[in-house]
Amino acid sequence: MNLDFTQIVPYIPFMLEGIWVTLQFVIIAIIFGFILGSIIALVKIGKFPILRFLADAYTSIFRGTPLILQLMLIYYAVPQLTGYDISPFLSAILTFGLNSSAYVSEIIRAGIQAVDKGQKEAAEALGIPYRPMMFKIILPQAMKNILPALMNEFITLTKESALVSVISYLDLMRRAQVVGSDIYRNFEPLMFVGLIYYCLVMILTLIGKYVEKRLRTSD
């Protein structure tokens, strides 16, 4: 065994900084993905067939191709096609946000459609208009299905975020690689950031459990 964690000590602040760099774009991507995903979900259950078709096609494409391909396409293709020199940060937000919105829209759509059809009919029979019906009757009930699945999606996104290292975005993952080539040892820095990823995911999991418990007691 040839393990020496003391060598990474000088690099620890450098790697810890990566937490914030990773979190920064993960949080923005989650928010962007959630907002866009909600809109797409409403389109999917809406009454315009053409928009519905487009929303389904969008989802299908983003779920049906590798994330790393989407990331490279946006990072390399945007400058090539438009001449705009897109930064790794912006590419990362765009890719992860767009990709996540496809999954989020499915989660919300499924959650809404799992609510008993009778709820909509009861609301209609009482004359309650679409908006209040959606936001005060259907969505509060759909939340029980939606929130746990959303937490899972956020956890997945956090883990997959390590992919941005391939477009030289200096996130946690990339920093481990940089340190590795600096000290000619890869195992130790990789283990170190692995631990950090694990902690991040555990924190999210705990939040998810807490939310789920709150939802269950609110019945």
Binding site: E121, A125, G127, I128, K136, I137, P140, Q141, D219
Partner: peptide, 29 residues
């Protein structure tokens, strides 16, 4: 719909509202 009320076989009460809110929500909205 304001003039015609309907009662269903399976009730379809709003499960996330208490009884009073079930009754007041539609008239208020």
């Amino acid at each position: 719909r304001k003039q015609v009320g309907m009662v269903f076989q399976h009730f379809h009460l709003f499960p996330h509202m208490n009884v009073l809110d079930n009754l007041t929500y539609a008239p208020m909205t």
